[in-house]
């Protein structure tokens, strides 16, 4: 890892400490989405923010070696497909798209509310990786803009 990429050591250290809890809290928001305020979207945004924070602190190269833009868009796509499949299974089992076809369970327990947990997880994958991919795309765009004037000088 090159030392001069990214921000100052203070920011890097704080990021190191804060990133794990951010991801855990995001996962908590997602998994308890059906019984407490929260759900796939806010949880997904937290997951994306953790990745974006690493990108800002350590630079794009470091984080892209772990999760590349292509990998992010594939995960994003898989999230959408999971949501779509849950809807389709509902359509084939009960005749209604997105029908909640699983056991509902006891209210206010973690394993309740049928397909909602699966849908929340699918939305997390979709939203989290999508926002991260958008951020990477914007970062690339910025690089192009910065590099262009140099070419003109030559």
């Amino acid at each position: 890892m090159e030392k001069h990429i990214g921000m100052t050591p203070i920011v890097k250290m704080i990021t190191r400490i804060i990133c794990g809890p951010m991801l855990v809290f995001g996962a908590y928001i997602v998994l308890y989405g059906h019984i407490t305020p929260g759900g796939g979207f806010p949880g997904g945004v937290m997951v994306a923010l953790a990745y974006i924070l690493i990108t800002l602190a350590y630079g794009r190269v470091v984080v892209e070696s772990k999760v590349s833009g292509i990998a992010a868009s594939v995960v994003d796509d898989i999230g959408a497909l999971i949501f779509w499949s849950v809807g389709m299974i509902g359509l084939f089992i009960g005749g209604n798209f997105l029908l909640n076809f699983l056991e509902k369970g006891e209210p206010f327990h973690l394993l309740s509310a049928g397909t909602l947990i699966i849908n929340n997880i699918a939305i997390t994958l979709k939203v989290g990786m999508c926002l991260y991919a958008i951020f990477l795309a914007l970062a690339i765009l910025q690089r192009v803009v910065i590099e262009k004037p140099k070419e003109e000088e030559e």
Binding site: S73, V74, D77, I78, L81, W84, G87, M88, L91, F97
Partner: peptide, 20 residues
């Protein structure tokens, strides 16, 4: 056929394209 398929099929196709 369920008319919701009119919306769901193109969406599913769109999500499937990046994998294909």
């Amino acid at each position: 056929v369920n008319p919701v398929l009119l919306i769901v099929i193109p969406l599913g196709g769109a999500f499937a394209i990046p994998l294909f």
